[in-house]
């Protein structure tokens, strides 16, 4: 199965903007078929998730997925390319801190994906004729922005794995599906058995996704109030990048000792 959701080829940017709509279109159309029409689909969806606006719900999921996937891909893919072309070693020879190189790459990726998010969400709303500006927009934006900081940490963790395991493409593939599943791309994580719910809640994008959905569509926060959920994301902001960087440098040192960063 080669569903390369992220594309970093010529023309890739345009595709990035169209893809969230494509992704959301599948459950939307499937749902309408199951319900036997848009109205019944909305009613069924409300019973299961708490909102009738399934289109916005799914679009938010697919767009946040793109942000997460994009950030991870940017770091992982960049690293692999550099390894293959030999520029990673050149970068290591430069006196610039590793952290700032990665920060630069991640920041670039985040800004790019955030802009893509806005455009893609607007496009999806236009295609499926829903109002994108409802609920507490500022709060949703806060969840988005705060939620992006832990992503930097996840990207580092991911980068560390890529440094170690050479088959980055396969991992990117798998990670995309695991991420989409755990963060509740098409559904609330309440459908999970309890142990899986705990695993999902250790994953910051789950909070980001639910936060945006709750503030825009009123599907309910994990801890009843927005400030609790936002506070949890805040804690992730501190822990995840630190943990990611720690692991990254550990693995990096190991590799420098064993084989060198240029080996592949």
């Amino acid at each position: 199965m080669r569903l390369r959701i992220m594309s970093r080829y010529p023309g890739g940017n345009l595709i990035d903007i169209a893809i969230p709509t494509f992704i959301a279109a599948m459950p939307i159309l499937l749902g309408q078929a199951i319900g036997g029409g848009a109205a019944q689909a909305a009613a069924n969806f409300q019973q299961n998730t708490g909102t009738t606006n399934y289109v916005a719900y799914l679009l938010i999921g697919s767009n946040i997925f793109m942000i997460v996937s994009g950030t991870m891909w940017n770091v992982g893919y960049w690293m692999r390319r550099e390894q293959e072309t030999g520029t990673l070693e050149a970068l290591y020879l430069a006196p610039t801190g590793r952290g700032s190189i990665l920060l630069g790459i991640s920041l670039y990726g985040m800004i790019r994906t955030l802009i893509n998010f806005m455009i893609a969400f607007a496009l999806g709303s236009l295609v499926f004729r829903v109002n994108p500006l409802q609920g507490n927009i500022l709060l949703a934006l806060a969840f988005l922005l705060v939620g992006m900081v832990p992503l930097f940490g996840i990207a580092l963790l991911y980068g560390a794995v890529i440094l170690r395991v050479k088959e980055a493409n396969a991992l990117i593939q798998l990670a995309q599906w695991v991420v989409s599943f755990l963060m509740g791309l098409f559904f609330p994580i309440a459908v999970f058995p309890i142990w899986l719910r705990v695993v999902a809640m250790l994953f910051p994008p789950t909070w980001m996704n639910n936060g945006v959905r709750a503030s825009l569509l009123g599907v309910g926060y994990f801890f009843q109030h927005w400030y609790f959920d936002l506070a949890v994301l805040g804690v992730f902001c501190v822990i995840t990048p630190w943990f990611g960087y720690w692991l990254f440098t550990r693995i990096e040192h190991g590799i420098q000792r064993d084989a060198g960063v240029g080996e592949f």
């Binding site: 019973q47 299961n48 593939q173």
Partner: peptide
Amino acid sequence: TSFVQIFFMILLFTFATIMFEPR
């Protein structure tokens, strides 16, 4: 990973389907 991801994909779509079926 090819095998593992298939299961995630199926689960993903199955859960999406369930969201649209009457409770």
